[in-house]
Amino acid sequence: MMHGLSQFISDCRTVSSGAELDDLFRNLYRTFGAETGALSCIGSPSKLLNFSKVVGSSNPEFVRTYIENNFILYDPAAKRSIKSLAPFSWDECRIEVGEDKRALNVLNVADEFGYKNGFVVPIHSGLGNFSVVTFTGSDLDLTPATRGSLHLIGIYYHLALERLMLIEAAQARPDLTPRQIEVLRWVSAGKTDWEIGRILSISEATVNRHVERAKERIGVRTRAQAIVECLVNGIVTL
């Protein structure tokens, strides 16, 4: 695997600010020919991530047009992201929409604004947050290697954002104890419970208890649920 990508994955586990993360994200997707990377959160039961953000040079005029015309209702990419977790390109959507004029209109307007092609990565995280990361570019060449790389960039960007927002939410909550916040900070820096225990001179089980109590208070689901939810939703091992 490409060095830059491995480095990005590793940085995503330790990065501590959103601005720094966005820089890493932008610098990497550009090497694959994408001009913008956008993360939109469609469903988030825990309310931690309820936003849409664009990294890179987004066109405010396009965003305004999209919102004013309620494109979200007809956007074939949005529809498809809800149905399946497999990544896809706008070109593939175009084939799918056939004669649906309103759906075609969304794609054509995007095209007029210079978004010639896009690559869409739907993500369902273990913590129950759903998001869609879209990469666009005027000459985005979607080779198999580029698709695979953008897919991973989208996933790890989502995971890092989710981790940062979780920490932010935790820190904004006055009902968390200082110890819980301290432990969550180390968790956010990618340390294991065992490592945190060594740093703070407390047992691994105590660290875990702080994490679990903090998560209960913030209202996120357990780490264990992460895997189970995916399995029962039929995501497979081969």
Binding site: A226, C230, V236
Partner: peptide
């Protein structure tokens, strides 16, 4: 495994390499 499963593996705290 299906790539969609990767976030869950990461968030379960498993150590792995791609």
């Amino acid at each position: 495994m299906d790539t969609a499963f990767l976030p869950a593996v990461e968030q379960a705290g498993w150590k792995y390499e791609l």
